[in-house]
Design a binder for these strands. Structure first.
Lengths: 233, 233
DNA sequence: TGACGATGTAATAAAATTGTCACGGATTTG
DNA sequence: CAAATCCGTGACAATTTTATTACATCGTCA
């Protein structure tokens, strides 16, 4: 699907110019003439990027920027500010308000498009990050981060691989030997009971005092990560 | 300091013409006769701009362009392609390979100079700059400046590229080997542990005594720049 | 040329992680 | 019920990995 760009600009001429260039480059464009409309559309249409004029009726661009950043729906939405003057002060304020980049008018179409592409490229990785989850446990493979509910969970390398293996095979029971093969590697030899210790460490890191334990012990068989019922908050 | 321009061109007559015009306009000029030499000089002399002929011995202009873009040292170096005909196909390919602008031969000296100035202006500190940010860390690529909060942060060239790479891939963990490839270049060999030292230098430059460290060490995996809970003023 | 900044390496200190054990409670078996 | 297993747990020492420091080199710039 073509990326959707929200252009917030009150001057018709510039609006036309932007629409022309963006659509030629295979973007879809929606327009807002003032700050209020911008906030509304940003929430409703969920654009992939916002081109935001500095000077606007009703709400200044910088204020729109701030509000977009504050709202959970639109936080993280890439924003490029358009401003008439290249004043350093404005620039700093724009960036502080949360803009991702900044282009001064007059601008060349190619320059603007380059910025648009750059910003979109930058904000892409977050989208396709590989994550595993089970109930309120979330693991981000690329970032190497693990969370349970609202808090970050720190895991050692082995615990990380162990949990990852469970997450990739939820509900299934693994014997100690199977886990050693899968997590430690088929060629290393360690005591099977070592698995117990790491299961323990994983549990300790994962479970706060009151929370329930997602790891099920199957006596004389091994361990499993239960796909919990309390999915998706 | 006068801007340094690398002219890559195998026809002596055009070379002379270019040098004459450029030097008259207060640019310094270095010459390369073929693609190999171009890459070498671009890396060694660090020119501010490259004028790159399309047809070259050894390596085509487009290939040179691509390689310049791929190498960490020369990525971001402004490139203007010179092409014999104004064929649309060539132009598209040139721009796709990463050229900033292109000029068709024959060209008038004044036209060429106008393009040169335009491209340089765009990549100069005075002009707009692409910025990368993470929390209160702001990097201005074109100006080659880094700030944290209110203060300027001085980084060596390697630390700059290192931080840039992290900023362009926030949250993701990179092994020492990956960082060497991305920041040092895939062809140079340095000890992986060297990365540690540069991480240290980067941290020292970035973190005042009380501030928290945005760079996360992931044991047995590498390092990551954490996309922190955004703090927009 | 000499001061200077930047860089890569090696050596050493400091942390974090890991595999094992031993003990004791819990569960199953006979 | 007693024996036999099995699992949870805390403590440790060894090992691995990272942080930090010091140093030699190299190119730049006055």
């Amino acid at each position: 699907m073509k990326p959707l760009i929200l252009v917030v600009e009150d001057e018709a001429a510039i609006l036309t110019l932007l629409r022309y260039n963006l659509e030629r480059e295979n973007f879809r464009v929606i327009e807002a003439r003032d700050g209020e409309e911008a906030l509304l559309l940003a929430g409703e249409r969920k654009p992939d990027l916002v081109l935001l004029d500095w000077m606007l009726p009703l709400l200044s661009g910088i204020e729109v920027c701030r509000r977009l950043r504050r709202a959970p729906q639109t936080r993280g939405l890439p924003i490029i500010m358009l401003t008439a003057r290249g004043e350093e002060g404005d620039r700093i304020r724009g960036l502080n308000a949360g803009a991702d980049d900044y282009v001064t008018k007059p601008f060349s179409p190619s320059e603007l498009l380059a910025r648009v592409r750059a910003v979109m490229r930058r904000s892409r990785p977050a989208a396709d990050a590989e994550t595993l989850r089970c109930g309120d446990i979330i693991m981000d493979i690329a970032a190497h981060k693990t969370r349970r509910g609202e808090r970050d969970v720190h895991l050692g390398p082995t615990e990380f691989r162990l949990l990852r293996h469970f997450l990739e095979h939820q509900g299934r029971v693994f014997s100690r030997e199977q886990l050693l093969d899968a997590v430690w590697g088929a060629d290393v030899y360690v005591e099977p009971r070592t698995v117990d210790v790491h299961i323990r460490r994983l549990r300790k890191a994962l479970n706060e005092p009151h929370e329930d334990d997602p790891i099920r012990t199957v006596r004389s068989a091994g361990y499993a990560l239960d796909a919990m019922a309390s999915q998706y908050a």
